[in-house]
């Protein structure tokens, strides 16, 4: 079984300050640490686990700048077969549809049985590329997959709905699934894997221009300061005391 995994390099912003540049259309990347998008890392792991059970190749695809080679190489070190990085000239102005179109052009050549992506990217969070790609390839899909099994040309998957409810679907391959975090335990690359990755194929598609964008960022701005918590000031001792007094006053202790 041949598997394609689409991954993205994103900044880790959960605990970092994020600043907008002077164009007001991009953030300033300088102080940020980048890594593979969290959900994509689970998608990659799911491909690696499947490959342990069946023969076949894993091809990684990404649309991004040269720096994205880092996340491709990390995937190759974990055991993927080869990587493809797509870098159009107008990389800075893509929307989710254009990214899916760029991926489709390359992925359709590969004759894949299964295509996996993360269910959401932690940067712009459209949850749009995977399902758009499936439509462009003319194959069925399921999103938010939290359990997956393959048998006789069909996948049985569980999708996460709401309030803890799941639905089980049976989907004919080839198919595309967007993978939810928590489906597995992503591995780390081994030293040997990192050495081997240096020898693996990393194809670069450049000198192309993406077309068909339908959504444009007019501007980025900081969220308006609305309701804000009363921040307790002072050292650890003092704020702990203050909070206890507040909770006690409300009859919560």
């Amino acid at each position: 079984m041949n598997i394609a995994v689409c991954i993205k390099r994103v900044p880790e912003t959960a605990e970092a300050a994020v600043n907008i540049d002077s164009s007001e259309k991009h953030i300033i990347p300088d102080q940020l640490v980048f890594d593979i998008n969290e959900a994509d890392n689970y998608a990659l792991e799911e491909a690696l686990l499947l490959r342990e059970k069946t023969e076949g190749d894993i091809t990684l695809f990404t649309v991004g700048s040269k720096e994205s080679d880092e996340v491709i190489k990390m995937g190759l070190a974990k055991g993927a077969t080869r990587g493809v990085r797509i870098t159009p000239e107008n990389l800075d102005n893509l929307d989710a549809y254009a990214v899916a179109k760029l991926l489709a052009e390359q992925v359709k050549e590969g004759n894949f049985d299964l295509i996996l992506t993360g269910c959401i990217s932690s940067d712009v969070g459209n949850s749009q590329v995977g399902v758009t790609l499936a439509e462009l390839l003319g194959i069925p899909h399921a999103t938010l997959v939290i359990k997956m099994g393959i048998e006789d040309g069909f996948a049985t998957v569980q999708r996460e709905l709401e309030g803890g409810l799941l639905e089980e679907l049976k989907i004919k391959l080839p198919a595309l699934f967007t993978i939810q975090t928590g489906i597995n335990e992503p591995r780390y690359a081994s030293i040997l894997g990192i050495k081997r990755a240096a020898q693996k194929e990393l194809r670069v598609i450049e000198n192309i221009t993406a077309e068909g964008m339908k959504a444009e960022v007019v501007k980025m701005y900081y969220p308006p300061v609305g309701k804000m918590a009363e921040i307790l000031e002072g050292g650890v001792e003092e704020v702990s005391g203050k909070l206890c007094e507040i909770l006690k006053g409300k009859g919560l202790l």
């Binding site: 300050a17 712009v124 959504a215 444009e216 960022v217 980025m220 701005y221």
Partner: peptide
């Protein structure tokens, strides 16, 4: 049509315009 979105874990907002259709 303009939409307002939250990106980067809620730390930035973005205003999007959609192509004429």
């Amino acid at each position: 049509v303009f939409t307002e979105r939250q990106i980067y874990g809620g730390k930035i907002n973005s205003r999007i315009s959609l192509a004429e259709n």
